[in-house]
Amino acid sequence: MNTPVVKIDNLVKRYKELVALDHFSLEIAEGEIFGLLGPNGSGKTTAINCILSLLAYDKGRIEVFGKEMKPDSYDLKRRIGVVMQNVAVFDELTVYENIDYFCGLYVRDKQLRKQYVEEAVQFAGLEEFTKFQPKKLSGGLLRRLNIACGIAHKPKLIILDEPTVAVDPQSRNRILEGITKLNENGASIIYTSHYMEEVEQICTRIAIMDKGRILATGTQKELKKMIKKSEIITIELIELPEADRQAILALPHVYQADFSGHRLVVLCSGGKHNLIRILNYLNERDLSVGHVYSKQPTLNDVFLEITGKELRD
């Protein structure tokens, strides 16, 4: 097996009484887009800052590219690119100069740096704004500049900490496409977010966090398989006698059936042809059916089932 890009063993980080990371362990393989999903305050950013050796931790060990990560591990830092949650650029420098400056902290060769900066400008779609100062950019463009500054030196591991916060949908799509492209070009990615749609869209593997702990790790499919609820069927009906509701509840794989407001909501745990089976029953009972919806569970459902609360609570 290849050496993991990031390996975290039993990490504990406390802020006085508050346990921010509680025996946090994680392995991220090369070439992954690894999503850290959790509500605000779940410990995602703390974990990232510990990986980067910015934060001191109480217990545990962190390895990056197979070596222990320390504040002076400059050889490791050279291979890491970070896009922080807060935009960190110089107001006095132009877009081009900002990217050049931060790229220059990693790349000494002037010609190579010039090439990298131009590629980063292109990647972030900032060609028309290279001479602008950051304060003249919109929120979305500023985020894109922040990303360009973090990835210009072509790192092998890119850490993005909620890069789409307060970004318009157009910029968000561009950012997500860009991240996928970076991954295709060979970078391993750690992506933190509390937007499950984003994580579902781009991540190859996901860890769900809450209160400083990892609750579950796996691919989307694996995570969704972990929960009881695997299908939600909603059927519009004029009426449903209680006896019929009980009969539906007795069908195979159905574990919950609620009727209210002319809507029958049926929760199924696994199994195939659940929808057909329910529709057949209603047809036999001569009950008129309106609209019918069948929905697969989301990561929010996974989170809800594991923690008992919504992801965005």
Partner: peptide, 17 residues
């Protein structure tokens, strides 16, 4: 200083000592 400004944090995680 990585604990005071975002710029400080970005510089702290860079490859420049």
């Amino acid at each position: 200083q990585g604990n005071l400004t975002a710029l400080g944090a970005r510089k702290n995680i860079s490859a420049t000592g």
